[in-house]
Amino acid sequence: MCGRFANTLPSDAMAQLFDAAPANTLPHVPNYNVCPTTDIHVIYRTDDHRRLVPMRWGFVPKWYKAPNDGPLLINARAETLADKPVFREACRVRRCLIPADGFYEWHRPEAGDKQPWFIQPAGEGPMVFAGIWQDWQQDGQRLSTCAMVTTEAQGRMAEIHHRIPVMVRPEHWAKWLGEEGHGAATLMCAAPDEALRFHRVSRAINSNRALGPELIEELDE
């Protein structure tokens, strides 16, 4: 699963890149340690245009009586996305894009503690995750929430962790957002090794209070 990522692209640059109208309450960037349950930048389509908005990272089903009424759903498995009642409607009509610089994953060697890695695009531009979103409302409280779509890792990524976020290339953004009809299911596959760069980072990222660009720097050991 993906449980942390980094996002440093300025909000106005994100709005321009995705041709999306930005909300006035977007999260602070840069953020080198984006954690679950915090607000993140999300692009979705409504009323024939794209919007860049904040959403809570942690999908809240409509039947939850409170945001913490059940498991924290930060990831949704591509293999069961269309079948699980909790995600089924969202995967059909409420898909979104989640921009990032890269994400963190932890590998446990045969001996020793877990080692964090930072995975980022091999080329230019941001890493864009496939997501789904859900508005939740109870007793006057309202939240816009989302989850990342993940799939089975391949190649070198599988040596670090068995799951990987689904990444959407620029030419497929419109299809994932539902702007080009059907076919979004064909996009839910793992990125090849050549599309990614991997390096080890400090265990400082283990703390959800850790801050600063040093979190994504390559470990010199």
Rank of each mutant, 00 (worst) to 15 (best):
D39Y: 00
A184C: 11
F198T: 05
T145A: 07
R94T: 05
L211D: 09
F18M: 10
A6R: 07
T25K: 13
A185D: 15
S207Q: 07
V34A: 12
R51D: 04
D48L: 04
M55D: 00
D193N: 13
F103Q: 04
R203C: 01
N31D: 15
R4C: 10
P22V: 08
I43Y: 11
G70I: 01
D113Y: 03
V53S: 00
V149S: 06
S202C: 05
L9H: 11
A204M: 10
M188Y: 02
I160L: 15
Q141D: 14
F129L: 03
N68E: 11
W176H: 01
P67R: 15
H161V: 12
L17S: 11
I119T: 10
R50P: 02
C146P: 03
L143Y: 12
G123I: 07
F103G: 00
V60Y: 09
A174W: 02
A78P: 13
A82E: 14
P170W: 11
R142W: 04
A76H: 09
T80M: 12
A13E: 15
H182C: 05
V29S: 10
P27S: 07
Q120M: 11
D39W: 00
W57E: 06
F118P: 01
M55G: 00
H41N: 08
T186H: 09
D48A: 10
E124W: 02
I132E: 13
T8C: 07
D83F: 06
A130G: 12
N68K: 14
Y44E: 07
A111G: 08
Q138V: 05
L177C: 11
F87K: 10
C146I: 01
H28D: 07
M188N: 04
R156L: 12
Q137E: 14
Q16V: 08
Q141P: 01
P67S: 13
T46K: 12
V166Y: 02
L196V: 06
I132Q: 06
H49R: 14
H41T: 00
F129Y: 12
R50G: 01
K62P: 00
V128C: 01
Q115C: 02
V201S: 05
M157L: 15
G58Q: 03
D139I: 04
D220S: 12
A90W: 04
T46S: 14
A90Q: 08
V201G: 04
V42Y: 03
G102H: 02
I119G: 08
R209E: 04
E217C: 08
R94P: 02
G123F: 12
V60H: 14
R169D: 10
T80P: 07
K175A: 05
H41R: 07
P109C: 08
F198H: 11
G112Q: 07
P121K: 06
W117H: 10
E180R: 10
I205T: 09
L72I: 09
V166R: 05
D39G: 00
E179F: 07
H41W: 03
I164P: 00
W57N: 13
Y104D: 08
T150G: 03
I164K: 01
T8E: 04
F129N: 02
S144N: 02
A190N: 04
Y64P: 07
L73P: 04
F129Q: 00
A21S: 14
A122W: 01
A21L: 10
R203F: 04
P109E: 12
R108Y: 06
L9M: 09
A23T: 01
N33C: 04
D39I: 00
A153V: 13
E124H: 10
T37C: 03
Q141E: 15
R56C: 09
W133N: 00
E179A: 13
P213F: 09
Y32L: 01
C96R: 13
